[in-house]
Design a protein around this nucleic acid. Sequence first.
DNA 1: GTCTATAGGTGGATAGAC
DNA 2: GTCTATCCACCTATAGAC
Lengths: 191, 191
Amino acid sequence: MKELNSTAHKLLDIAEHYTQTQGFNAFSYKDLQRDVGVKTSTIHYYFPTKQDLALCMTDRYVDNFLTMLEAIATESSSGQEQLEGLAKVYIRVVSQGKFCMCGMLAADMSSLSDEVNSKLSDFFKHTEDWIAKSIQLGIEQKAFSAELDPVTSAALFLSTLEGGMLIARKHKRPNYLEIVITEVLTQFRNR
Amino acid sequence: MKELNSTAHKLLDIAEHYTQTQGFNAFSYKDLQRDVGVKTSTIHYYFPTKQDLALCMTDRYVDNFLTMLEAIATESSSGQEQLEGLAKVYIRVVSQGKFCMCGMLAADMSSLSDEVNSKLSDFFKHTEDWIAKSIQLGIEQKAFSAELDPVTSAALFLSTLEGGMLIARKHKRPNYLEIVITEVLTQFRNR
DNA sequence: GTCTATAGGTGGATAGAC
DNA sequence: GTCTATCCACCTATAGAC
């Protein structure tokens, strides 16, 4: 990833916020101009096309997200607590009325370049791999059922996060996501 | 719901297709003009604003969906088979490269009127109620664990469908959705 | 690096003839 | 009910001055 100056980062911040709250096709360079205080021509200086913006935004987001996953895994040595740590992040996002940025871009995938789409697929794969490791750890620690297949269960957990988030946001009820996560974790323990 | 003539239905068909494949903000009246073969002014005759289009589209979709749910419940007297029947529908949709129309509109909720948003919330609530009934039935039939809470598990199942669909479509791998559904149903049996 | 100015296209939407 | 013609606001994007 390139080095970006403060203006570029502010632009990405706002673009990311719009993407998570409204979708990639629901904001314009004019919106960024209003919110950041630089003209649209300046925005084009940093991100010549909106596809470039999407690419940088995705790069930065995925980078930060993967760093955060590492931090959660370092902070907690319990597989179950790692999943709960990840869940907490999703719950906080939805309580701000936002959706997962990559989830939103996945919905808007037809508007995005192959390059961005490929990075989105990687995002889901990496996150799933991280979840699978935590589940594997949880099984070894006897917190989760030995019957679980870590890979399949990781797909289920991630699907639950994304889908629960989509519906919780629609209902404006962050607690909805909390409930479905609690339920899937309970089933991981008792299967 | 109003009675709509053949042209209006064709327009809704195409609008629905665009919504499920690209999102509500990613198609225009010009796209409908090209695909249906009537001028944009004619489309405005049927749907004066794009919000009106969204409303009619949602009404028709939800109507058809709830009818389909009734049909599935009638066809199959097994709770587990009812859930599998619903799952099959979602798998077919994702195998066509589409997302759940209400799921997509839920992502685009900031662009939609309160009326449409309220209908979307109802869609998820009704579908969840239907799922809860099937789970309750499955418990009575000893197919699902007696430990399950039907309401909570229904929220989990619906979240899994929506999230699994979002990710499966991103990966262009309908089988992904099939796997997560199989997993959640397995956990319903063994909890 | 940020600006003014503007091009060229597309968005949703309307008036009025047939 | 469908058309032609058109409006105007907005969109992404560029040229060129500072």
